[in-house]
Design a protein around this nucleic acid. Structure first.
Lengths: 218, 218
DNA sequence: ATTTCCATCGCGAGAACACGCGAGAGAATG
DNA sequence: CATTCTCTCGCGTGTTCTCGCGATGGAAAT
């Protein structure tokens, strides 16, 4: 985990508006022989200005509650400047929407300020080695929404034909177009759709399509 | 993180077929003052038999590559026996399908045998405190499939009202019902739906609903 | 051999939808 | 003050859907 590198130390960036915490973190990083933090700023804007001539930044620790540009908004900006960097969110926020937004924006990990310093340093190492350090409560949050997406399909057995028609409906085709595409009559498609209604317990196309997608049937 | 409990130690179960590793792990757990591992078996079946009279098991460490019932298959069996337990997968497997299957089955965390012993013990504590310990490479795997599900919404800006109507449509309501529920006229809903069609570039309800769900707008 | 399931096809009536072509009011922006 | 958005409402016409009530033939299962 802790590479006793004889090579050049890895460049770590730090964006955190709380001055004391920033200094402590920077010192902690710099006391790791294989890491170096030369650029620590209190906002995304300041960081980008400060690193205007710096070619490479391996990992960026990013607070979210920042003056000026919010952290989540800053993520794409940082990626534009450092396409290959790995961004680790380090904040006090642990509210689902924020977390998901940040991760969706491309963050490689999510640490909390409540975590111990060595946990954070380990997180940097993990990010450098291709991992995604997540605070375990954040991980749990992701797992639950992850499982919410696939709520263990409640045993709906559609026939192959029904599934096929359903997926064409999900593309926005109308029954007649589906009939043409499958080379069957409108009535046939209609019958299949009725059977689908029965199985999914809905009474119109949009409901069927919605349910099918949410259940992962189409 | 490390509760210096004066209360009874927490019951940890262990299912692992490699005898030496099992013994090492059991000793490690038992050397933690707040944890106790009295039941360690080499298969799911053996574990269930051995704990037939045990009422409670807070955390179960579960290997996947087991004789008899495979670990993933064993997860629901263990839950049936211990509904409130937290199952931590501890294995050498790090292949995506297996990982996702295990987590979808309800595992509360996923550790690798390559992890250090103290990482595993910390994982148990995290699970006890409601977290989901994930090896950082596993976490990364989940994040990537997570982001694959939501492919960075292509900048569709629907209004709040449009989103609201869309989500009602996704529940299978027809326009008239939505009008009633929102206390507006049918025509108003109709207009909103037309605007949605324009923005999503579709021409019927099912297409709109499908696109909305797939884009995570509803 | 009978039953069951699946895919196919047909008609008709009434409901729901798609869309063109309007309009007015209020809020926000410039 | 004009413009732009958003939400609101209205009518008419043609299209599409929903559903009741059928049917046939083939394949698989019992």
């Amino acid at each position: 985990m802790s590479p006793s590198s004889k090579s050049a130390p890895r460049q770590i960036g730090l964006i955190e508006d709380h001055q004391d915490y920033r200094r402590v973190l920077q010192q902690a990083i710099n006391s790791s022989p294989h890491l170096i933090c030369q650029h620590a700023a209190s906002s995304v804007e300041a960081f980008l200005a400060e690193t205007a001539t710096i070619p490479k930044m391996e990992v960026i620790l990013l607070d979210l509650n920042l003056p000026g540009v919010h952290g989540v908004t800053g993520i794409p900006m940082l990626f534009q400047r450092f396409p290959d960097t790995r961004i680790l969110v380090l904040t006090v926020y642990d509210h689902k929407p924020v977390v998901l937004e940040a991760l969706a924006a491309g963050a490689s990990g999510y640490l909390l300020k409540a975590d111990r310093l060595d946990t954070i340093l380990r997180g940097i190492d993990e990010a450098l080695s291709g991992g995604a350090p997540l605070n375990s409560h954040i991980a749990r949050m992701i797992l639950t929404t992850f499982n919410a997406v696939r709520p263990a399909a409640p045993e709906i057995d559609l026939t192959d034909r029904e599934r096929e028609i359903l997926s064409l409906l999900a593309k926005g085709l109308i029954k007649k177009e589906i009939a043409d595409q499958l080379s069957v009559s409108y009535h046939t498609v209609d019958t299949h759709v009725r059977n689908i209604y029965g199985k999914l317990k809905v009474h119109n196309l949009s409901g069927a399509v919605a349910k099918a997608i949410q259940l992962g049937l189409a």
